[in-house]
Amino acid sequence: MDEKIKPLLANYLIAIGDDELILGHRDSEWCGHAPILEEDIAFANISLDEIGHARLWFELAASLLGEDPKTFPDQLAFYRDWDKFRSIQMAALPKGDWAFTMLRQFFFDSFENLRLEGLAESAYPPIAQAAAKIRNEEVYHLRHTAAWVPRLGLGTQESGRRMQTALEALWPFALQLGVPLAGESELAAQGLVPAADALRHKWLEIMGNAMQEAGLAIPEIGVPAVVDRSVQSEDLRQLLLEMQEVPRQHPREVRW
């Protein structure tokens, strides 16, 4: 691979890994607090899966950057300042109610499944292999959230109202999923990652149908609330203060 491409690809992987890590952390906040025991366990599973995916992408980024894949993921997760994260702002939004959490997860899982389909065809074999592995779990996440969204949307008046409220709050942030990542067109031209435009169009079409089936109306907003992934939110800063607190207080002292 061209030496100039390596850092671009590594940054792409770190960005999608950041999405997984931050969303996984938010999902973990439901542990012990979900509305029913079975869903509590299901979301703890999803949370662990997402954080595991982040680690896989960070390990691949490490090998591209000549870093140690054993230590680099922890470096990125626990010793990186909040303004260096490249996650979408939707991932860091406070967990809200169950409708909000379920819909956010559904938006993310649907987009991620499309991206993983593309990454499974990557010209860089380690990415194709990781994508195939991650996809098995994401297919299941999507089945879970795709089952819940229409049930909540059409369930009771209250569940439908909460879902519509969540949709209106989330939609402008969800649109950031479709914004091309830095260097994405160059990486796509080399067959390393899927083209952002095609992903976005397909995702919007699927979301349109899914929201209609769930009795929900997508707000007429076409512009993402935020475009640039280097612009991070106070929500992320607060999340990292908590997530990074223990490792930063005891660097290298605690074995996990």
């Binding site: 649907s110 499944n113 999507l142 089945r143 795709a146 089952a147 229409p150 049930r151 909540l152 059409l154 369930g155 009771t156 569940s159 699927i206 899914a210 089936e213 769930a214």
Partner: peptide, 11 residues
Amino acid sequence: MGAPGLRGLCQ
């Protein structure tokens, strides 16, 4: 995506 049946919560 497998389209889920659009069943209400309590049907």
